[in-house]
Design a protein around this nucleic acid. Sequence first.
DNA 1: CTGGGTGCAAATTCTTTGCAAAACC
DNA 2: GGTTTTGCAAAGAATTTGCACCCAG
Lengths: 140, 140
Amino acid sequence: MSWESYLKGNNIRITSGRVAILNILKSSDKGLSAENIYDLCKEQRENLNLSTIYRTLELFEEKEIIKKINIDGPALYILKKEGHKHLLQCDLCNKSVEIQCPMEEIEEVIKAQAGFSLTEHKLELKGVCDECRDKKNSRD
Amino acid sequence: MSWESYLKGNNIRITSGRVAILNILKSSDKGLSAENIYDLCKEQRENLNLSTIYRTLELFEEKEIIKKINIDGPALYILKKEGHKHLLQCDLCNKSVEIQCPMEEIEEVIKAQAGFSLTEHKLELKGVCDECRDKKNSRD
DNA sequence: CTGGGTGCAAATTCTTTGCAAAACC
DNA sequence: GGTTTTGCAAAGAATTTGCACCCAG
């Protein structure tokens, strides 16, 4: 599907800048900062203002098209993968919460720290919800 | 062991501010920002300048006493847990790299986003190193 | 034509730095 | 006493905002 119809489907107005940003994110195999994107836009004669880029990225993030990753220095942005989720169940009260799989963050951290690109992962989580933790703490 | 001897062991001069910061971090069950720490110091009549706090946190981070976690907004700091490591082996060339377990970051993210405290995790990773990835990409 | 999108400059937020005074060993 | 640490004020990096103009629908 073209970016144009993709954007339309998400109720986002089509502009050449937005399409350019999506193309740039698509063709990168690692997270890009707003400034990276700014430079790459320039290279392809799509002169966007930095603040426009920030606004676009914010919009895309709200629409869950991209993911913002905060590491040291400027935030990095990546296109969202198949957003698989994890179900976290509280060990104490069994209430469960769904979270976005945190592996995209982990991937970027590892890429930055060790120069390693993950191809597969398996993640199991156990934990307790806030209320149960608070109750537990107040008993200690 | 007292903070004093702990600091001495790490070749860090003892000052009341440093001890206060360690106490504050120790008694928090979640990451604290520099400003959180600043406020908590005030509450206990340990008036430290914000820049002193940043410098202290930076020092502790270098000495690997604490971990800095970048989420949205100000960075959070936590005392380091038992730093367990992961061994990552490249699927292609078998070279291996040891990395710090990235779950401390993730724990904070999940705590902030879902109000869930992790108690256990199991993480298995597979990946390829930068060089192999680059070779592979240039073939594609 | 009209409301959302953009550029520009200025503001904000978080963090770092230079330097003189104070604290530690 | 000599080196480290601290406070203060000012600089710096990253991001956000206000407003006038512009363009897609």
